[in-house]
Design a protein around this nucleic acid. Structure first.
Lengths: 204, 204
DNA sequence: CGGAAAATGGACTCGCAAGTCCAAAAGCGA
DNA sequence: TCGCTTTTGGACTTGCGAGTCCATTTTCCG
């Protein structure tokens, strides 16, 4: 596959998105290549033409595809964590995003199926986490600059804790179907940050 | 399988633990029934004798087995969250437990493979979370009674947030291999709880 | 318009792993 | 010890799904 004509690119994309849709709905284990073919009205030769590595390469592409959406779905709120109302709006956006997504987390599903044999999958997740955490940390720093968050907090470590809470909330949602834990975690984190500012004032 | 002789029970247990060991090491996808057989020195007829439902039933049994270990591994610290040193000791125990476990989380692996077709797997996880959260909540209440945690906090919701942080920390560890996020989350939660007590004092 | 490269259809192979089966050995209770 | 039940060995079947292959059509570009 040296070059890709417009038609070819469209087909490749159709396969990719079709596979992602099936996985989001039924999970990885229940999604065969033949399912993808009939879903996207393509033939086997096409799939292996655009994804020479077969199933594994396709799953990895789906992982990248899904990973790319995660942060995008949080914009523009994630970009501007510079006031408490902005943080609250972001919190609502995150909760809403995962409530819509439902019980299945495609990214977790894909990576846990690719397992450790395909280091690429872990790399995709790790990179996503790194970027996500960095964006949150930027928000923390802005609030510190504005005197809204205590100076004593390490922005990066704080962001790590918030991120862990989100991930765990989503994970628990996968078995319970509820966003209760996600909300509780975000609310606790935000409360902690808000308190940290107040304590600084109290001490003066 | 009406009754189970002593020998039969031992064999069944050997199969179960062997399967759990393989899954902990290689993950579910890379573990076949034949692998389990050679690992445990048993034959196919034995496996299907003790797990008539085949692979699915065995995986569910492994899930239950692993779920049972989770809380046990946190005792006795989890049982006595009645002082800050006790909470800190529990925190260390949890971090240590998951650091030892390494990158693979057998429970997540199994449930994500059984997927939504086997509701039993989700039930196992849900029940584990419920119990885990309840035990943490008990600890919160004790600390409230002792005036060490602010009365304004909802024990159950607080426990939910702590639990989410733990789960997320472990999940992130699965791709990064590090317990950084787990530690950051637990530390942030504990700091929040400790602050909640101090604020109550300040207000008086 | 013409030829090379890309895209497509779909039948075919092939290996793996789940699950079946039956006969033989071992255990158990009376 | 006897007879019944449980346990065990391991060969066999079977189905599914990944991956291969080649002929044909379509697209691209000079």
């Amino acid at each position: 596959m040296r070059t890709l004509t417009r038609k070819g690119a469209a087909t490749r994309q159709r396969i990719l998105e079709g596979a992602a849709a099936l996985i989001r709905e039924h999970g990885v284990a229940a999604t065969t290549l033949d399912d993808v073919l009939s879903e996207t009205a393509t033939s086997k030769s096409q799939l292996f033409h655009y994804f020479p590595g077969g199933r594994e390469e396709l799953l990895l592409a789906v992982a990248r595809f899904e990973a790319g959406r995660v942060l995008e779905d949080q914009r523009p709120q994630l970009d501007d964590l510079s006031s408490w109302p902005a943080w609250d709006a972001w919190r609502d956006k995150v909760v809403d995003r995962y409530r819509r997504q439902g019980r299945l987390c495609p990214l977790n599903s894909v990576t846990s199926h690719l397992g450790d044999r395909t280091p690429g999958a872990q790399a995709v997740v790790t990179e996503l986490m790194r970027r996500w955490q960095a964006e949150i940390a930027t928000g923390v720093r802005r609030m510190q600059d504005a005197g809204q968050i205590g100076q004593g907090l390490d922005p990066d470590r704080t962001a790590a804790a918030i991120l862990a809470g989100i991930q765990g909330g989503v994970l628990i949602q996968m078995s319970t179907g509820r966003t209760t834990h996600l909300e509780a975690s975000l609310d606790q984190s935000l409360a902690y940050l808000k308190d940290s500012a107040r304590q600084v004032c109290d001490r003066r």
